[in-house]
Design a protein around this nucleic acid. Structure first.
Lengths: 109, 109
DNA sequence: TTTATTGTTCTACGATTATCGAACTAATCT
DNA sequence: AGATTAGTTCGATAATCGTAGAACAATAAA
């Protein structure tokens, strides 16, 4: 069974988190996972890039400590480490996701 | 008199802001400017890198819309565009700066 | 006018990053 | 057992990034 390494809370850094969220592909991905409010398989989320590129981005998000990956058969189930991030960097993830959501709405106007 | 181009509020992007803040040198710099609570000259803030590197970083912060630069004689006076950023991305800058400050305190423990 | 100060730009380098197609791996389905 | 599915890794490319020393530019001080 494939096992993924996730950083402990101590290993998560603010600049690492900001860096991971500063890429539009990754920010959009995290938004979609957040909106789903439950574990999503990798492929459940539409992506504008190749599968290999998406694997790369998901690895960046995992290594930054933003997502948790749970293997489930041939799928990888993704969830946000919201609680740990909120405890470590209060308000950062939530405010970023809210702003990203507002942008989405504004751009659809 | 040297004039600096600053992006308008419309031109400021969330990923641009996150990218600019994801570098430790720039995050530290923005923290120092925030703590000062008034315009600082470039050189008033200690930096761990060469002057030319710092000029580069300051340009990135300006182009991301995080800081405003006002030439003042041979100096450049730096201020945070806090209000505009708060209006556009509520809570993002403040929560990031608070977390950065907490890290600073924790690391001194 | 010359010198000093502050900060910028130029140029270059090494490292990192995002991208993708091809090939691969592990689990599940038939 | 073979085929399918989901996702990963490999290897390559091009672009971006952070770094710095040297040279420069604008302003102020002497």
């Amino acid at each position: 069974m494939k096992q993924y390494q996730h950083p402990t809370a101590d290993q998560i850094t603010l600049t690492g988190v900001l860096h991971a969220l500063s890429d539009p592909v990754r920010l959009n991905y995290v938004q979609c996972v957040a909106q789903a409010a439950c574990e999503q398989s990798c492929g459940a989320i539409p992506t504008p890039v190749a599968k290999s590129t998406m694997s790369h981005h998901i690895r960046v998000l995992r290594e930054a400590g933003i997502i948790h990956i749970r293997p489930y058969g041939t799928q990888s189930l993704i969830s946000l480490r919201s609680d740990e991030l909120e405890q470590k960097f209060p308000g950062v993830l939530n405010s970023v996701l809210k702003s990203a959501k507002n942008i989405e709405v504004t751009e659809q106007a």
